[in-house]
Nucleic acid binder design. Structure first.
Length: 270
DNA sequence: TTCCAGGCGTATC
DNA sequence: GATACGCATGGA
C-alpha cells in the first residue's frame, strides 16, 4: 500500500508543515487507539514513549510544531503512518456497505504505529476500564517513573512504587509484562515476525494478557494490520452486520477496517 | 446506591 | 469449550 506515496511537506521556522488527505487529528488521536494525547486549544499534545509533540491543524494542513525535518521523517511520519495510502484502503473498503458508511463517518482515522512496549502496557491497563481512567493511569505511571517506564523498571518496581498509579488489579499484570519482556521470556522479535497466531501466544505468556489485549498490542504496537481485536463493540458489529463472517478479501488489512468499524458503532449509532 | 467500563483468571460443568 | 463470577477504581 505504500508504493508511490510522496509526502507533501515543507520545513518552516516553527516546525514542519504537512498537507495530508485522509487525516483528522481528533479522529486519529482520540478514538481509543492511543491514550497519551490530549486537546490543547486547537492543537493536540502528546507523546510517543518520551518524545513529545504538539500538532495543530491550520492553513489546510498540519503543523508539527517545533519539529525538525529529521525528527519528522525519523519518528512522526512513521508514527502517523504517512507512508500508507489510506485513500486506496478506503476505496477498497467501500465495496462493503457497512465499511463504506464507517469510512464516510470518520474517514480521517489513521492507524498510529505506536511503540510495542508502550502499546502492550496501554492495553493491559485498558481491560475492564474506561478511556479517561486509562489515560489517568498511564499519565500517573509516566509521572512516577519520570517518563514511560522500561520493562526492567516495571519489573523491579514494588507495590509501594506502583500504588500511586491506582491501576487496581492490573498492577500485577504490568509487573508480569515487565518481568517477561525484560528477561526475554517474551521475545519481541517473535511478536514482530512470527505468524500472527504464534505472535499472539507469545504475548499471552504474560499474566493479564488474553486474546483481546494481545491483538491490540499486535495491531497498535507492532503494526500487524491483520490483527483483529474483538471487544464488546466489535462483537456487536459482527453480530449485526457480518452474521456470515467478515469478508475474506479484507483479511490482510482487517485491523485497519476494525478501526473504522469500532469508531462507527460507538459514535454514529446508539 | 448501583451500574458500568476496548477483559482476564479461575472454578465448574 | 462454554459459561459464571470476582476483580480495583472511579465516574455517571
Amino acid at each position: 500500500m505504500d508504493a508511490g506515496i510522496i509526502m507533501d511537506y515543507e520545513v518552516r521556522a516553527n516546525g514542519v508543515f504537512l498537507r495530508q488527505p485522509d487525516f483528522d487529528l481528533e479522529q486519529t488521536l482520540d478514538c481509543g487507539q492511543a491514550f497519551r494525547w490530549s486537546r490543547n486549544g486547537n492543537a493536540f499534545v502528546g507523546y510517543r514513549l518520551d518524545k513529545y509533540l504538539r500538532i495543530s491543524e491550520q492553513d489546510g494542513g498540519f503543523l508539527f510544531e517545533n519539529t525538525s525535518e529529521e525528527e519528522f521523517l525519523g519518528i512522526w511520519a512513521e508514527y502517523f503512518d504517512l507512508f500508507t495510502d489510506y485513500g486506496a484502503l478506503k476505496k477498497m473498503f467501500s465495496a462493503d456497505q457497512t465499511l463504506r458508511l464507517a469510512c464516510d463517518f470518520a474517514g480521517g482515522i489513521r492507524l498510529l504505529k505506536q511503540d510495542g512496549w508502550e502499546a502492550l502496557c496501554a492495553f493491559i491497563i485498558s481491560q475492564n476500564n474506561n478511556i479517561p481512567r486509562i489515560k489517568g493511569i498511564i499519565a500517573r505511571m509516566c509521572e512516577t517513573f519520570h517518563g514511560f517506564p522500561s520493562p526492567f523498571a516495571l519489573a523491579e518496581a514494588d507495590s509501594q512504587m506502583l500504588a500511586p498509579l491506582r491501576a487496581g488489579f492490573r498492577e500485577r499484570y504490568l509487573r508480569s509484562a515487565g518481568e517477561l519482556v525484560a528477561s526475554g521470556a517474551v521475545d519481541f522479535s517473535v511478536v514482530k515476525d512470527a505468524p500472527l497466531d504464534e505472535a499472539k501466544h507469545e504475548l499471552m505468556k504474560i499474566i493479564g494478557v488474553g486474546e483481546k489485549v494481545a491483538m491490540c498490542a499486535l495491531l497498535y504496537g507492532f503494526y500487524r494490520i491483520d490483527a483483529f481485536p474483538v471487544d464488546v463493540w466489535i462483537k456487536r458489529v459482527l453480530a449485526k452486520y457480518y452474521p456470515s463472517g467478515f469478508p475474506e478479501e479484507f483479511m490482510p488489512v482487517r485491523g485497519i477496517a476494525q478501526q473504522y468499524l469500532f469508531h462507527y458503532i460507538r459514535c454514529a449509532e446508539e
